[in-house]
């Protein structure tokens, strides 16, 4: 990344590093490292561990994986995973989460692309204000933004009142506690995550290429499909992943806006953990969700690095 000269310059010529410099460097690196190992990596290993243990009634409700009192040192069971594969409920939840996340991502792209494009083409002063207006909802509470939709979609909410007044419908529509509400909530909440990376790649886009294409007689449509869109593809991919990944594991939106049958896996995990108190199954659900998301997460990291290294 070309920013390594921060401390390195002196050291190139003097191979012997004084102890105090070495200590400071160790402190800078290993204090945050240790924290993340303890509270981010180790927790995942524990999730993984518990997903292979038996549920028991007690506190905590799982059998220890390493139990010195047993003759076999490691006690492993695949029952939790077998249970997940055999019960349709979980399969359907994963599929439905993926479907809801994918369709919402598509809508975010559809709404977000023209917006990001417009912001990137605006005059600098306007651009700052327009960008701030995209970021502003992101700083206000996520929960309250989801709650705002409860008011919009309820039987006597704004949308029903408007539709009734216009005479388009005679009975209020039941929109709250449905899949439509979940879609709306996700699109609304994650739209800024789509617009910001799109804007970043569109803003960097070299205008001369578009002008060249246009001067050579390409129609505005051709300029867009052959120049603008391909060049903004890293932003499109980053934006889509930034929406898809958290939407897939979303809990709050289906819990507040979805119906009782809204089977998203994040909600399923929460229920398994709190209502059924079956921790081993809950951790198995989490492990599989993580495995599903591993590819998108790694893709995202690749594209973010590619964006940072770009011009």
């Amino acid at each position: 990344m070309g920013s390594g000269l921060l401390y390195g310059v002196k050291r190139v010529s003097t191979p012997k590093v004084p102890t105090s410099e070495r200590l400071w460097q160790l402190f800078v690196i290993y204090l945050p490292y240790l924290w993340l190992l303890l509270f981010f990596l180790v927790p995942f290993l524990i999730i993984f561990k518990i997903s292979f243990s038996d549920p028991v009634i007690g506190q905590p409700p799982f059998t220890p994986l390493f139990d010195s009192s047993e003759s076999s040192f490691i006690h492993v069971t695949l029952d939790n995973y077998r249970f997940l594969f055999e019960d349709n409920l979980y399969w359907l939840s994963y599929l439905k989460s993926a479907k809801i996340a994918a369709i919402s991502t598509f809508w975010c792209l559809l709404i977000g692309y023209p917006m990001a494009y417009g912001i990137a083409r605006a005059k600098p002063v306007q651009r700052n204000i327009l960008l701030m207006l995209v970021i502003l909802p992101f700083w206000t509470s996520f929960l309250l933004r989801v709650y705002a939709w409860m008011g919009m979609l309820s039987t006597h909410g704004l949308i029903n009142t408007a539709l009734l007044a216009s005479g388009l419908i005679e009975q209020p529509l039941k929109m709250l506690y449905s899949d439509t509400a979940v879609y709306l909530g996700i699109i609304y909440s994650y739209l800024p995550f789509m617009i910001l990376p799109l804007y970043a790649s569109l803003e960097r886009l070299d205008n001369s290429m578009r002008e060249a294409a246009s001067d050579l007689g390409a129609s505005p449509y051709r300029v867009f499909t052959d120049v603008t869109l391909p060049l903004s593809l890293p932003g499109v991919i980053a934006g889509c992943l930034l929406v898809f990944i958290p939407a897939m594991g979303e809990y709050v939106i289906p819990a507040l806006l979805g119906g009782l049958d809204s089977l998203m896996i994040g909600r399923q995990l929460f229920n398994e953990f709190y209502s059924n108190r079956d921790w081993p199954v809950a951790t198995a659900v989490a492990t599989i969700l993580l495995i599903i998301l591993l590819v998108p997460i790694m893709l995202l990291q690749r594209y973010q690095i590619a964006q940072e290294d770009g011009p």
Partner: peptide, 17 residues
């Protein structure tokens, strides 16, 4: 990783630790 990790997984894993 924490930037994109679904919150349910982060929460569950921290509780278990």
């Amino acid at each position: 990783a924490p930037l994109v990790m679904p919150e349910v997984i982060t929460g569950l894993s921290l509780l278990l630790v």
